[in-house]
């Protein structure tokens, strides 16, 4: 299973980012294989609108079934929910730690948007 983690960097040691739509990038981590790929989200970082929607599209296309982030806005939630992607909130410092917390069950399941748009 592939999980998407929001980050400011490009690998597992990178800093974890608590925003989703306006995160600088995503690490798509394959739990079964232990491999990962990086997806750049810098285009959405400064998008005037629809950042969450596009970010959601990116991780859906990358095949992620789970999103591990800090928060999720209303439109991103709608898209991810429609696509059947579960959203987990963790309080991690690095991407590796976020993965660890997710595997260990140290997370909160986000069941509705927990922040407004453009937060």
């Amino acid at each position: 299973m592939k999980i998407a983690i929001t980050t400011t960097g490009k690998d597992l040691t990178s800093e974890f980012e608590s925003r989703f739509g306006r995160a600088p990038g995503f690490i798509i981590y394959d739990i079964d294989k232990g491999s990962f790929e990086f997806i750049d989200n810098s285009v959405n970082l400064n998008a005037p609108q629809g950042a969450g929607i596009q970010a959601a599209m990116s991780i859906i296309k990358a095949g992620a079934k789970v999103l591990v982030s800090g928060h999720c806005g209303p439109k991103a939630f709608k898209v991810l929910n429609e696509a059947g992607i579960k959203i987990y909130s963790v309080e991690a410092l690095t991407v590796a730690q976020a993965v660890e917390y997710f595997v260990a069950g140290r997370f909160t399941l986000i069941q509705s948007a927990d922040v407004g748009g453009h937060w």
Binding site: Q49, G50, A51, I53, M57, K61, V79, E82, A83
Partner: peptide, 12 residues
């Protein structure tokens, strides 16, 4: 404007 989202069917 990111107003139409498509990842299968139908678009949102």
């Amino acid at each position: 404007f990111n107003a139409i989202v498509f990842f299968g069917s139908p678009p949102m």
